[in-house]
């Protein structure tokens, strides 16, 4: 069992995701990786589907992990993890493997988890493999140069959803809610939560809970991407916090059919305060922002965030 981490000071000193990669300055997913690896510890195997956390981490034949890591296609993280988990199970049973059974973690982008990789994720959860599947959500196909994915917010610019006279809001669709897709259709699922790099202790504890669960677990981590969202690299944590404070991203654990909120909020900030700091939303008109605010309000209500959005005093 991995123990609960009471505070950031009590978090383990050891790092298993170490320097030596070339992610952008201020990369949110890289920080999520570091926290995940720290929480998981040395007896861990990572599966890395194609995406920034493959390409920017493993350039030139090496990688920043001190634990085993294997590449998966962007399509098949869940299936590769299923095979690894099954192998250790049977090899231990047949006495062909003597060591402790390792933790198996998939670290997939939103493309690799919510879009092209969803089938493999769902198959893995359905079959009940003891794997923690993490989606680091940077809200775009980042590695291919920022294209829209199903988690890209309504109204965001990407290279595939540019704003123009005929399509003034850029992206027209509302995002797919993968934690909900996962939560309601997989009877073997043992743990589900969302997390944010703005709440690192909470994130690490959710990783540990997911790993302690005997069976499949899903963790959806929002991880801001300065390049794709177009904000300065020293603002990553601020962006992560604002996402939660505005309700654009909701932090919870889903247990026994109920949403358990992870942070107490007295009130929410309006989404406009989040949007104005990111150039990907620069083209939005007031009616688009209103539409987005209404969507966020509804989504918050669904998970039990009932506090109203109140504009900050200037």
């Amino acid at each position: 069992m991995l123990e609960r981490i009471p505070s950031i000071r009590k978090a383990p000193d050891e790092e298993y995701y170490v320097p030596g990669h070339r992610t952008c300055a201020g990369c949110g997913p890289a920080l999520a990786y570091r926290l995940t690896a720290k929480a998981a510890g040395p007896n861990t195997i990572f599966i890395g589907p194609t995406g920034c956390m493959y390409v920017a981490n493993t350039s030139y034949g090496c990688g920043p992990w001190r634990v085993p890591w294997i590449h998966a296609q962007i399509t098949n993280g869940g299936a590769v993890a299923s095979g690894i988990e099954a192998a250790f199970k049977v090899l231990a049973r047949k006495k062909k493997y003597q060591g402790e059974i390792p933790h198996v973690i998939v670290f997939a982008g939103d493309g690799g988890a919510v879009d092209i990789g969803l089938q493999a994720l769902s198959g893995m959860l359905y079959r009940g493999h003891d794997v923690l599947f993490i989606c680091y959500d940077n809200e775009s196909y980042a590695n291919t140069g920022i294209q829209t994915s199903p988690t890209t917010p309504y109204g965001a610019w990407t290279t595939f959803t540019p704003a123009g006279p005929a399509v003034p809001e850029g992206k027209k669709l509302f995002p797919k809610d993968n934690p909900k897709v996962v939560a309601h259709g997989h009877p073997e699922l043992k743990y589900l939560a969302t997390a944010s790099i703005g709440w690192p202790v909470d994130l690490m504890n959710k990783v540990r809970k997911g790993l302690n669960a005997e069976g499949p677990a899903y963790l959806h981590i929002q991880a801001p991407c300065p390049k794709g969202w177009q904000f300065p690299p020293n603002k990553t944590i601020e962006m992560a916090k604002l996402a939660v404070q505005t309700g654009m991203f909701q932090l919870y654990e889903y247990e026994n059919g109920e949403y358990k909120l992870s942070v107490k909020m007295e009130e929410r900030k309006p989404v406009a305060e989040y949007l104005k700091l990111q150039k990907r939303f620069a083209h939005l008109q007031p009616e688009h922002i209103e539409k987005l605010q209404a969507f966020v309000d509804a989504r918050c209500a669904e998970v039990g965030i009932t506090v109203p959005a109140v504009a900050s005093a200037r």
Binding site: A79, S82, G83, V90, L91, Q119, G123, Y126, R127
Partner: peptide, 27 residues
């Protein structure tokens, strides 16, 4: 005595044995 996994498609079949073989199993 084997793990018999119902893949969700052939792409998954090949992916499962890719992972299992890399973990030291005959597949």
């Amino acid at each position: 005595d084997a793990e018999f996994i119902h893949g969700e498609g052939e792409h998954a079949q090949l992916s499962v044995v890719y992972g299992a073989s890399a973990a030291g199993a005959r597949t």
